[in-house]
Design a protein around this nucleic acid. Structure first.
Lengths: 218, 218
DNA sequence: GTAATAAGTTAGACTAATCTAACATAATGT
DNA sequence: ACATTATGTTAGATTAGTCTAACTTATTAC
């Protein structure tokens, strides 16, 4: 059994693994808000438990076992968020902190019951895919809005690097999951985009925002 | 903020406080499954935080503050049990372990939402009263079945010292909350009682069982 | 009322998770 | 290419919560 501290390291490691899968100690340290020497020592412990591959001074990699455990925690987190939104009437902005605590509960049947009550959802309220009971993730090929071109119409499917502020920002502009956006133009200087959606005919979204909105083509 | 370890000490202390309110270190130690020296040191810590009154070699007493905090944790525990039974379809035997973990979640709104969805229940699935948001307990004047006399008819309202085995035992004999029991006789030798209820005309309940069944008069 | 037993405390050690300070290695810039 | 900066590691301290062994105080039993 892993402690919830260990679980948080695994989750952070997973979320920082890009396609290369390599994670720097400093990034993990920042993500967790924990000093580097502490991270190094925990990394050694996780390495002994065969949850990550570790060589001094080299980027960290989750092992298959580590990745699976991370995904099972993420499954609990996302099912919980979905349950809070769908069955308890919470807003999608406020469920993250709650799920951070509930995801460490060690009662599998609780989460399987949520899954059942939710009718085995594939995505959480932020549009993120929910891993299955065996720790497998149906990877969706989302793309950042900032990578799309003028003239395209896309559907907003998920957010990246979500924070309370960011979700609040989206709410204020009525940007909801499933929303269709049309790209009218891109400003070469700062990468901001002029888009229309819903009743809004000409909204300008900064590059920072566009990088965090994940979309698929219609 | 108290740690969940501290919360468990407070809860155990409350549940061991009889009418005198005094709790022995050894009983607390047994209840928590933690050795006495460890308990002594935690007791000093809780005493510093003004949660208990402590004098060397004397029984422990919760302060008003400590009692309130204990009741607020118990509130979360009981609301959670009720929620699991009423809204998620769990059996009343299986919810205790889950609630033990969930009661330490530090998100007041989660429990207030449960309360609302449950329509502000006064009792949990085991018939125990649920303290209010300010840590106040509506004390019911339950009595042990073992204290009642032949000829009386009583309603089974709550259990004392509940364990999985005990709940299983009750289930097997179809003894449910709200059940009416008639007392036909008491065996002076061992204190066992002959009772009838539902379709059962002559069931014998041992003194041990009768001490753990809390009832009120009809 | 003293000896034996039960209950409670003190002292000292251990593990998990954290920190700071100091040192080591890798990456970067001119 | 070497100096500087960024990243990573080691060493040693700290806190919370736990333990065992040894000692002290209170209770019980004849």
């Amino acid at each position: 059994m892993n402690s919830s501290t260990e679980e948080n390291y695994l989750k952070a490691l997973f979320s920082l693994s890009g396609k290369s899968g390599g994670v720097n100690v400093i990034d993990l340290s920042k993500k967790l808000g924990i000093k580097m020497p502490t991270v190094t020592s925990m990394v050694k412990k996780l390495s002994q438990k065969k949850l990550i591959d570790y060589k001094k001074y080299k980027p960290l990699h989750l092992t298959a076992k580590g990745r699976k455990e991370a995904l099972l925690i993420i499954r609990k987190h996302r099912l919980t968020e979905m349950f809070l939104v769908e069955k308890m009437g919470f807003g999608w902005q406020e469920v993250h902190k709650v799920a951070e605590q509930l995801e460490h509960v060690q009662i599998p049947v609780l989460f399987e019951r949520m899954d059942e009550m939710l009718n085995f959802p594939k995505f959480d309220p932020h549009g993120e895919p929910i891993p299955d009971q065996t720790g497998l993730l149906k990877q969706e090929q989302y793309d950042k809005l900032s990578n799309r071109a003028t003239g395209e119409t896309v559907v907003f499917c998920a957010v990246e690097n979500t924070t309370d502020d960011f979700l609040e920002y989206l709410n204020n502009r009525e940007i909801r999951l499933g929303l269709k956006l049309k790209i009218h133009g891109i400003e070469p200087f700062d990468g901001s985009m002029l888009v229309s959606y819903g009743k809004r005919q000409a909204e300008r979204l900064s590059h920072t925002i566009c990088e965090r909105l994940l979309v698929r083509k219609t």
